[in-house]
Design a protein around this nucleic acid. Structure first.
Length: 432
RNA sequence: UCCUCGAUAGCUCAAUUGGCAGAGCGCGCGGCUGUUAACCGUGAUGUUCUAGGUUCGAGUCCUAGUCGAGGAGCCA
């Protein structure tokens, strides 16, 4: 029995007889010669079956293979400049596991609705492989960076008793007779964890029940949120630019073939190195005034077109800091030099990808937070534990959240986040 | 929730002024020893989204609904 190997290790086995286990991606029938495009989950390779080189039974089986039939191939890999990928398998024998039914996703064009309804099968295509391999590597790079920079992974709960920020719509569920909600952020728990461990991060799914229907929204998405004690706004922006640059440069190094599959222009990613440009909200408003939005009012939030105009002025991601206090969450610290603005900052990605990070310095002031809770009509009793953090050794602290799917969409240059996660959850869509 | 657009074969789409339901791909059969979304020949495939209406006659026009796409707001 030939040694069973994976396509990703093919180069080490040139000239030796091996066995691959996988699926037929596509086939070209040339009569006495069959080209099989074969995949095993680790890659794609072309296999060639000559009638005179295999048994009549094996050749007949090869001719009858349908798209996505499962099959074991035994043969000899060799370098072959005519084959896509540079390697080709000369088949000596094959064993059919199942002849697949007529497969819905053909090599021709399909519409979004059809592909989304067949997401469980769409995942088998080379493009989806490239995207999800990049996603997995981004997640590893994120965790590596925090683990290597003194942050401790401290998980925050998915089921929560109340809204974290009181602003967005939550998914409600029944928790033994009392209402509970799927988390919209680990933020508040992160602050408690930072007071316990100094530098922490959480990483997990996040849920928003808002009826957002755009290319950058999911109802279930993944977010990494670091938080650290004694952090300031300036610290946050330094951490953010080092962290994001590490993730981007790691993907450029480690996932070059996948970026090539997606035909990603790499030059714009190669630019992503510290430091990033940093402008205030007020400076951003001035940019809008001179670039097509002369009527934009100070105090209004940026929409998608505004974010695009601002980010287009820079070759790197840009931090916009010191937003109007009224626009941001209740816990943001005020700027001591100008209380109309708070010590918050968002990071806008280039190429129109918009906000990928939001964060800032949190208020350490008990009296201010009590006032803010009342001002935002939030029930104080739900936040007693949070206020405790300002009673028992309060310190300045900062943190931020980075959206995984928007980061994947940016690095892959996708026009919609729905392809950045295996099973996207979107407005009124939960199948498959 | 609002605005715009759309729904015809398994898929992607066409169908003139309201007048016989079409093509390509995929699938079946036959051919081909270098194909890359192969090619050549040949064959089968329809609740035209749903309900109602106008009409001699509706894929086409009208009303309501369902589903989808793009965008807005909100956000990561």
């Amino acid at each position: 029995m030939a040694e069973r190997i994976f396509i990703q290790d093919m180069a080490r086995h040139v000239g030796a007889e091996i066995t691959l286990q996988g699926w037929l991606a596509d086939k070209t029938d040339k009569g006495r010669l069959q080209f099989l495009r074969f995949r095993d989950g680790t890659g794609f390779i072309q296999a060639v079956v000559f009638q005179k080189e295999v048994s009549p039974e094996a050749f007949d089986a090869a001719k009858k293979l349908t798209q996505e039939s499962s099959v074991r191939l035994t043969g000899v890999p060799r370098a072959e400049p005519r084959a896509p990928g540079g390697f080709e398998l000369s088949v000596k024998d094959l064993q059919v596991v199942q002849i697949a039914n007529e497969y819905p996703i053909t090599p021709k064009d399909h519409g979004v609705e059809f592909l989304m309804a067949n997401r469980h099968l769409w995942l088998r295509s080379p493009r989806q492989h490239a995207i999800l391999r990049i996603r997995a590597r981004i997640i590893k790079a994120i965790r590596d960076w925090f683990d290597n920079n003194g942050f401790l992974l401290v998980d925050t709960p998915v089921l929560t008793p109340s809204a974290c920020e009181g602003t967005t719509t939550l998914f409600a569920t029944d928790y033994f007779g009392v209402p509970a909600y799927l988390t919209q952020s680990g933020q508040l728990y992160n602050e408690a964890n930072a007071m316990a461990f100094g530098k922490v991060y959480c990483f997990g799914p996040t849920f928003r029940a808002e009826k957002s229907k755009t290319r950058r929204h999911l109802t279930e998405f993944w977010m990494v949120e670091p938080e650290w004690a004694y952090g300031t706004l300036d610290d946050y922006m330094r951490v953010g630019e080092e962290f994001v640059s590490y993730v981007v440069q790691t993907i450029l190094q480690e996932r070059a073939p996948e970026l090539q599959t997606l035909e990603r222009d790499l030059t714009k990613l190669q630019n992503v190195t510290p430091p990033f440009p940093k402008i205030s909200y007020s400076e951003a408003v001035e940019i809008l005034h001179t670039h097509g939005y002369p009527d934009f009012q100070w105090g209004d939030d940026f929409g998608a077109p505004h974010e695009t105009v601002i980010s287009e002025q820079f070759a790197k991601p840009v931090f916009v800091h010191r937003y109007p206090t009224a626009m941001k969450a209740f816990y943001m610290a005020l700027d001591p030099h100008d209380p109309k603005v708070c010590l918050s900052a968002d990071l806008l990605a280039p190429e129109g990808y918009g906000e990928i990070i939001g964060g800032g310095e949190r208020s350490a002031d008990l009296a201010y937070l009590e006032k803010q809770l009342a001002h935002h009509n939030l029930p104080r009793e739900a936040y007693e534990w949070y206020l405790d953090l300002r009673k028992y050794g309060t310190v300045p602290h900062a943190g931020f959240g980075l959206g995984i799917e928007r980061t994947v969409a940016w690095l892959c240059k996708l026009d919609h986040v729905r392809e950045t996660i295996p099973y996207p959850r979107m407005l009124e869509k939960i199948y498959p």
